[in-house]
Every structure is written in structure tokens, then in C-alpha cells.
Design a protein around this nucleic acid. Sequence first.
RNA 1: GUCCGGAUAGUGUAGCGGCCUAUCAUGAGGGCCUGUCGAGCCCCCGACCCGGGUUCAAAUCCCGGUCCGGACGCCA
Length: 432
Amino acid sequence: MIRTHYSTQITPEMDGSSVTICGWAHEIRDLGGITFLIVRDREGLAQVTLFKKTIDKNVLDIVRGLSRESVVAVTGQVKKEAKAPNGYELVPMSVTVLGKAESPLPMDTTGKVDADLDTRLDVRFMDMRRPGTKAIFRIRHLVLKSVREFLDREGFIEIITPKIVATATEGGTALFPMTYFEREAFLNQSPQLFKQLMMSGGFDRVFEIGPIFRAEEHDTRKHLNEAISIDTEASFLDHEDVMVILENLIVYVYSNVAERGTEYLKTLGMELKIPDLPFKRITYDEAVDIVRDSGEQIEWGDDLTTESEHTIGKTIGEHYFIVDWPTKIKPFYALPYENKPEICRAFDLMHPRMELSSGAQRVHSYELLRSRIEEQGLYADGFDFYLKAFRYGMPPHSGWGLGLERLIMTMLGIENIREVVLFPRDRRRLSP
RNA sequence: GUCCGGAUAGUGUAGCGGCCUAUCAUGAGGGCCUGUCGAGCCCCCGACCCGGGUUCAAAUCCCGGUCCGGACGCCA
């Protein structure tokens, strides 16, 4: 390929050597006798300096005729220069236009003029060129990488389960229907049932990072119709055990981002505070008390409202778990306590701003599971493919699902979940 | 889905009955300038979401639509 270096790989010590950089014409500053071309590539900016007196006329004409955001390859000599950003500049031998940009641009990439999120999402390819947006997605990559590293070390095996499914699975959320040849099918809301099958399959510990689809018509800054879920399931562990794995994962991810993502955090102008272990555990009953103390009405057995979540979040002030939920507001696969079946071994992991994850020890008895499905008003025969796995040796197991976008947005203090998804899908947006 | 707010050059905004031939920034086009780094200076270009109504007069007020933002609900 033509590129020899990224902008950040060039140092003043390389003075005199010849390099080729490839990138976008970020800015062209023509001062008359001297012209600066700022080339931006994935990693940063490089200054190309053209002295009118000594530069090849053709090269100068190309640079002067360049439109902002055109793609160029610049071959030139590195010159150590204290006056230049990064301590070096490039004196070009040749400048080639590889992709001309039209003008005017649909949005500004230099940070001089803001753009609404809606405008930015319409031209996400151009929004990606801004340092702040780029930083978010570089961090997103670090998060995904850290999750895989951590879970791999904990003995989890990565799996991928189908997204096109035959039946509405867990109840609760609405599903997107679709046509599968001559049959009706749905986009899966969660890998829950499949990862449980893997427990019967003897994989012991599995995880999946993949899309989940929810057909809810919600319209908020923390919901998406297509999101990425980090899902785990582990045999021979109870809900307490997988909560420990979850909180350790969160801290591992934060630490990794703080350590390897310093540059991106700096771009976003933030300092990352790594949460302390262990996270606080409060019971659902205690959560209800906090809500009642604040004056909000809540019945035992109600799910927490947004207001309640905020109240509790403010009271606790850091990551926390809510445990021992009423059985009736948790899915059928959450295991009720033997001695007190109205509550179950389910937990939610909360950030002060919102819920990040929910999990539970699962029902692994075939008979109990079947009756739980029916109690929740679902049709057990529709779960045949799932229930079968509980009849031939299913170990006790537990697991959780963690929303990747919520993890990132709460970590980075980002207000709108759409900021952390390249091409978000919400009630209105289907393109790009 | 309910409630509240909004829609003005490519982008982000000011104006909220007549002072609007619509503000400012950025940008585009032209010019000057040898150290810019959000370069500077001069000239110039470009906009009131759609439909109806009120009024002597509407960007501005009213009604409907569309789109956008926020809160809540649903949901994770």
C-alpha cells in the first residue's frame, strides 16, 4: 500500500527521512508565501508545509485547489520543526488527490460549529471524522475487547445463537415479526433460552455478545430497538457467584479503558473513576423503603419507576445491586427461593442513572420451569425445544445480560444512548 | 402512547406583529498576507418546514400536518 506511516508514528527524530501519509484534508491555511495543509488520519493530525519559494509549483497548485475533507496521499520529507504541532512537519514531494470531497460539507468536522445529533446521525460517516465521536467508538472497541479478555480468562466460551427465532420467548417485551420463507418468525429479544440450552450441553460457562431486538415503542435516551447484549450463563454457580463475576467484569472494563484509553478519555475531556468493589447489595424490600422515604408511592410487587431508580441511585451514589425481587415481576426462568417463593434469586445491576444488567439463578427443574411458564400465562408447548433440555440432565446455573450501550454511556457520562451506537435503530430511525 | 418545547442559509444560531431588503458565527467563491495551529483582514454568496386562517401588515399570532428535542409510560 501507499501509506508508510500514520501521523502519530512520525517523530521529529525522523528528520530527513521520506514518508507517505494518507488521510483527509482537515484544513488548508494559505498564508500567501507559506501554505499549511493539515492532514487528518485515523490516529491524528499531521502538518504539511509548503513554502511558495521552494515548493514545486504543481504541488502547490494541487494543495491550493484542494477542497476540505478530500482524501489525499502526501509523500514528503520529515522536517524537525519546533514551530509545528507535534514538533515535525512534512515538506511534500508529491500530493495526490485520492478522493475529492464536494462542498459545502453536510457538517463541520473541525469543532468550530456544533451539529444536532439528528444531523450527525444522518451523516454519521462524516460525524465519525470528529475526534469526540471517534474517541467514543475507539473506547467501545476497548470495552468489547476487555469483556472478551475477562470472560475468556474466567473460563467462558464464546457462542453465537440465532437471531431469527420461531416463537415469542420470554414474554414481556414485544417482538419484531418477520417472514421466514412461508412461515412467520421473529427477531430474537434475547439469547436467554439458547444459552441455557448450552448449560444442558455441558459447556459450563458461555457468553455471547450480540444484538437483541425489542419492538417497544419507547422513545427515550436510554432505549434502542436494536441493542448489543453481553450475555453470560454459568453452570454450578448461584446468583451470588455470577454477581461477583459481573462486578469484577465492570471494574476490569473500567480499569482497562482508563489504562489503554487515556488518549480517548482526554479527547472526551473526562477522567474515569473506577468503581470500588464489592458493589453494594440492597434487597428489593430495602429499595422500596428508600422510595417510600422519598415520598413516592410504591406497592410491594411493583416494578421500579424511572423516578424510583433515580431516587435510589442518588441515595446510593455508585454502582449497586438490587437483589431478591418479587417473583411475579421477573421472568419465569428466575428461581424462586425454596422457603419464600414470592421472591426469587434475581438481581439487577444498577448505575445511579439506570439499570445496566439483570440476572438470576435459573430454574433448572423441568417440572418447576413448566409450571412457572404456565403461571406467567405463556403456552408451555411453545417452549418444547427449550423444555426438552431440562429433562435429560440440566445442571443448576445462573447468568446475566448486560447492555453494552448502557455500560458505555454511563461510563463516559453520555446522555443519549444513540451517541454510542454507530447506526442506532429507534422508533423513527431506520436509515442509515 | 401521553404531556411539554421546538423547526430561520450547507452547519449552528439571533429575531417572536410594522424598525427584517432577517442577526451572528462557521462555510462556499474572490482578493491580500512566509509560521499558521479555531490564523488574520477586505469583498461576496446563501435561509424564515408545509397547508390554511387572523390582520392594513405574519419569520413572529391561531388551526391542522410533518419532522425534531425532552420528560414520563412501556421496556432492558
